[in-house]
């Protein structure tokens, strides 16, 4: 089914979601950098807490 704003129909075989891949890779990169920051700077870099 196509919507009212559809310019062209794209079938399953002609669609490669490379834009999605790019966004997911950026997300993974952000996750990795933030994890490294949280673990090495915030977790290991701080003093002992009441819990640790």
């Amino acid at each position: 089914m196509s919507g009212e704003n559809t310019v062209r129909e794209i079938g399953h075989d002609e669609f490669d979601p490379y834009g999605t891949l790019a966004l997911i890779l950026i997300y993974f990169a952000i996750l990795s950098v933030m994890w490294v920051f949280m673990y090495f700077v915030e977790f290991l870099g701080n003093d002992l807490t009441v819990l640790a």
């Binding site: 196509s2 919507g3 704003n5 559809t6 310019v7 062209r8 129909e9 794209i10 669609f15 979601p17 490379y18 834009g19 999605t20 790019a22 966004l23 997911i24 997300y27």
Partner: peptide, 25 residues
Amino acid sequence: TAFTVVASVEHGARQRGGTGLFGWL
């Protein structure tokens, strides 16, 4: 889910005439 849902939205964007690596947004 992140992959499937974003890919479905990208499909919509490209059917609406969106192009490019990020331009479809």
